[in-house]
Design a protein around this nucleic acid. Sequence first.
DNA 1: GAATGTGAAGGTTTTCACAGCA
DNA 2: TGCTGTGAAAACCTTCACATTC
Lengths: 218, 218
Amino acid sequence: MANKDTGKKKISESTIRRLSLYYRALSLLEKENYETIASKELAKREKLTPAQVRKDLSFFGSFGTRGLGYPVTELKHRIAKILGIDRIWNIAMVGVGNIGSALVSYKEFQRQGFSIKLIFDNDQRKIGSNHKGLIVSDIKDMPRLLREHNIQMVVLAVPAIVAQYIIDDVVAAGIKAILNFAPINLQVPDDVYLRNENMSMELEYLSFVISNHYKPKN
Amino acid sequence: MANKDTGKKKISESTIRRLSLYYRALSLLEKENYETIASKELAKREKLTPAQVRKDLSFFGSFGTRGLGYPVTELKHRIAKILGIDRIWNIAMVGVGNIGSALVSYKEFQRQGFSIKLIFDNDQRKIGSNHKGLIVSDIKDMPRLLREHNIQMVVLAVPAIVAQYIIDDVVAAGIKAILNFAPINLQVPDDVYLRNENMSMELEYLSFVISNHYKPKN
DNA sequence: GAATGTGAAGGTTTTCACAGCA
DNA sequence: TGCTGTGAAAACCTTCACATTC
């Protein structure tokens, strides 16, 4: 499915990100006891257009009923399956500074099926300490532990200066998906997907918007 | 400049985000004692194309020298000016849970000129406590304090359930730029710019990528 | 009647390719 | 010669509009 080797249609990153939005909206609609939802209403809730919603969903199949809309619970499950969140992912947090330890406590991850199973740091004072029921492991043991605990994704929250060094180890341990919070460009092989999250960049964008009286599209 | 009332060219959000990347790359190049940099090299460092770099910069002026490239320090300052980060922004953090308190300690904000001046919470146990030299204020005093301290941006890190209620107060205090970490769609007037940051969404994107063997463009 | 699913149109962003300048 | 700045082309993404289905 999607654009695997054999796939035809190209799914854009924007579509995938909107799938996450739909998923969250549908979870809410479910709680509000909606049974079906029209693209018009779903679009309104996420500040999109109805055509956009229908087009996004149509890439993955025909989930709706003409004249009625989409079945809330079923569509939610379908999207979960598409996003690959119809399961538990085992995550390791690497680095327990400010950001790392905040994310370990961040309940939304757990709620969406992202289960932090291991925590690493290289600071001797932190190793062995308890964070939300998890003991901080020595980063030296990372390669072995990542494999032993069947970790599939790594969140990197280490200082920029050591990030490349550490990510090399993460890659060597066979991890294919990494979310990086260090504000630096890291090198990974082609078959590893690295996503960078830079919170200063978000504030810089706000700064641009108000400095230039800029009207963003959405 | 940019797309003010009279402006002609439309600057895309992607261009602005890349400006942040260029800024960071240029800061590094400066430290490496580069005096000039060609679009080719800058592009390579940020995994973009040279044409993209030149096009982005050309929206704001002619900063380069044919045959030579761009002057590193000057371009850095020009971009800082465009982004509005050639100054200090006064920020208030609203909510000192996991995320909020991590961000208060996040040195990168300070480094980029985003200075957290006030911290708010509604939890009586937190009010009065010290976070990195700042005393947590009662959220009841927020409207007054935001104005008194000339706060220009607010970072919202409160539970989703109270987020709309609190953002209404932030808006009423005249704040025009808000970075929201609560995973919920908030309503603000047209002249307020609200940016949502949802970290679960980033992991969901990773999940999609590895579940579908999806090859993102970049 | 109501709302989906989807080609086609329209709009935006990126890349190409080259004229022009240091 | 080397690299910028930029129209034009190509690629990509969103919206339109309507045939189709319930």
